[in-house]
Simulated assay, not measured.
Amino acid sequence: MKKNVDPCYYGDYLQLDKLLSAQHLQSAKYGEPAHDETLFIIVHQVYELWFKQILHELSSVIDVFSAQQVKDQQLTTVVHRLKRVISIQGLLNDQISVMETMSPQEFLAFRDYLVPASGFQSIQFKMLEIGLGLKREFRIDFDKQSFYNRLEQKDRDFLEALEKKDSLFELTQRWLERLPLLEFDDFKFWALYRQATDKMLASDEAIIQGNPTLSEKDRRQELRELQSTRDTFAALWDEQEYSNWQSQGHFRLSQRALLAALFINQYNEEPLFNLPYQFITCLTEIDEKLTIWRYRHAMMVQRMLGGKIGTGGSSGHEYLKRTTESNRIFKDFFNMATFMLPKAALPELPANVKGQLGFVMVGL
């Protein structure tokens, strides 16, 4: 790399004159400036800067998965960049603690001057949600109706165009669907796996039936829950039943994609599956940290506003609390634990199957 010809000065490089003069207090327009409004502005500006970096990383990952093939070297880079996103999310979550140093009265000193501005209008955050896979049809009803109606037309047009592009969820699903479902000659993996799960569930039932500490009411309840687990397993093997469950919102991933993800997770110690496993784990952690951010944001809003409406017209805390669980993206990866077996109970992969997988997986 050649050295720069012109000297680089710290303040000029970071454009600190623009950055440090970008805090304009609304309260100052109407009288005495509210002391804590500076904190409020800076915290949200920092959020937007980190959103920009997350979008930069996410865009590069989407580019990789938009291609016909995802090579191992690319998957290494993808995992590295997603781990960076996870680290940034940790900072975003911790930043809420800084905001919580402001008391409700200190916030109320300038809050009404912000109407109708709202976090609803963060275009970058909406880009992040859409890019990950939280498009309008997957939002709660209130969110579907209000997703764009607080935005200027140019922003609305931009986001609606973005929704037509493939999200990371959709690209990940296609990538998983390209994994063969392990039917090689006389080795039928999923038939063996189903036998192992039936044995596990039968063992669970025997434990419930033989537990002397359970009352009859508790025993019936646990047996009902076990039957629900059996029904979930049954849906996993049956294409039509899976489709029914999917239409009811129990699954979002296609059956083939979920089975592939389950196989990768079960055999994650195999060198061939380690990077795919890390990728799936990263998506799970991103969804978890996004959910934690929503939850902490909801708690902060309740602490600051109680039952008051938000500046953007939403129901404030109540709305945010509902989105915490509803606006999940990779929930199937969390629920996959339902279908996991202990290592000792897994069907052993024959050497010839491992060899064939090694050949087939190179193109993923």
Score class of each variant (00 low, 15 high):
F158C: 09
V301D: 05
D94L: 08
R322C: 09
E152H: 14
S243Q: 02
L128Y: 14
P271R: 01
Y148H: 02
K308L: 14
K83M: 12
D143N: 09
V46P: 00
D72K: 06
G11F: 13
A67C: 02
E177R: 00
T284H: 06
L91N: 07
D218M: 06
F138R: 15
V61T: 04
A298C: 00
M102C: 14
E137V: 14
Q145H: 12
A235W: 08
H317R: 08
G316S: 10
A206T: 10
D185M: 08
E225R: 11
F251G: 00
W50M: 14
Q266L: 12
L114K: 15
Q153H: 09
Q240L: 08
F187D: 06
R224W: 07
S228N: 10
P116C: 03
H24L: 12
M340S: 14
G210P: 09
I264T: 05
L320N: 04
K343N: 15
H44M: 13
A22I: 03
L226H: 00
Q255Y: 13
S122V: 15
Q74Y: 07
T284P: 00
Q26L: 09
E285Y: 05
N274Y: 14
T38P: 03
Y277S: 02
Q45S: 03
I329Y: 03
L92S: 01
A257R: 01
I140H: 12
L25V: 02
T213I: 12
I207R: 11
L92P: 02
H317A: 15
N149C: 13
L49W: 11
L320F: 09
L349H: 15
L214H: 03
Y10C: 11
L259V: 07
L320P: 07
V362Y: 08
L20A: 12
K354M: 15
L19M: 15
G306C: 14
N93P: 03
L179T: 07
T284G: 00
A117W: 13
L305A: 01
H44T: 06
A117G: 12
I208N: 01
K217I: 14
L253Y: 13
F51M: 00
R220N: 09
R81H: 11
P271W: 04
H56V: 11
A67W: 07
T291K: 01
S66W: 07
S315I: 02
H317E: 10
L364W: 03
E205K: 15
T229M: 13
F184P: 08
S167L: 04
Y30K: 11
F184K: 10
T76W: 11
L128A: 10
L92H: 02
V301G: 02
E288L: 11
N211A: 12
H297E: 01
L162W: 04
S122R: 02
